[in-house]
Amino acid sequence: MNKFDYIAIEGVIGAGKTSLANMLAQKHNARVVLEEFEDNPFLPRFYEDRERYAFQTQLTFLASRFNQQQRLFEKDMFQDTIVSDYIFDKDRIFARLNLSDDELALYDKIYSIMSGIAAKPDLMVYIQCSVDRLMENIRKRGRDYEQHITETYLSELSDSYNHFFKHYTKAPVLIIRANDADFVNNPEHFRAIEHCIFHEALTQDRIYLKP
């Protein structure tokens, strides 16, 4: 049986990160760490006007994610494994996409200090999903401020995520093709993912899973 101290799950908005993190944590009595996006007061305004509110939104997320990362180092005597629905490194994906050159230069000075001492996962799970499926998931969950998200923005974000994980080397990456894996509603699909993570030998840098 695989023993990971820190499993991180990533994917574009609406890919199902939080659902999978909660399901795996419940199955294995793990400590779940979820991104605190609702605490960012600039996020609703960002989706209405990206250019105006991108910098404030990004710095708020950076500070929040870093504070959470520091708490990951705190041990829980009853729960050895941590499952999170994001990684600290994701912050720069959004920064590169949304900030101006001057803003990004300032952001990078702060990010470079924080990233060196942020927690690094033992296993990275990347949920890859089509833009159509992402839009459908976003509509279904019905968060008011997310209704301003456009297909164009999701497409840009998806391309950025794919590029990031193509070059990610800090941990093995398990890539789940979410268009073919309904792990929320299909127990067999979830069991296939859970078995791959906890019971199969993950010896490659990239593992593609399509239940």
Rank of each mutant, 00 (worst) to 15 (best):
K3Q: 13
E10A: 15
L20H: 04
A21F: 10
A25W: 07
K27W: 03
V32R: 05
E35V: 05
F37A: 13
F37C: 08
F42I: 13
L43C: 10
P44T: 12
R50V: 07
R52P: 06
L62H: 02
S64T: 15
R65M: 04
R65S: 05
N67H: 10
N67R: 15
Q69E: 12
R71A: 12
L72H: 14
K75T: 15
D76A: 05
Q79V: 09
I82H: 06
D89V: 01
K90C: 01
D91T: 02
D101I: 08
E103F: 03
L106S: 09
Y107Q: 00
D108E: 12
I110A: 04
Y111W: 09
Y111G: 01
I113V: 09
A118T: 02
A119E: 11
K120T: 15
M124N: 11
V125A: 10
Q128D: 11
S130Q: 03
V131E: 00
R133L: 03
R139M: 02
R141H: 09
Y145P: 09
Y145L: 14
E146T: 12
Q147C: 04
I149L: 10
E151T: 13
E151H: 14
T152N: 15
L154W: 14
L154P: 07
L157P: 05
D159G: 01
F164Q: 14
F164R: 14
K166P: 01
Y168R: 00
P172G: 08
V173Q: 11
I176L: 06
N179K: 00
A181Q: 03
D182E: 03
V184P: 03
V184A: 08
I197Q: 06
I197S: 04
H199L: 08
E200G: 03
L202W: 01
T203C: 11
D205W: 02
Y208K: 08
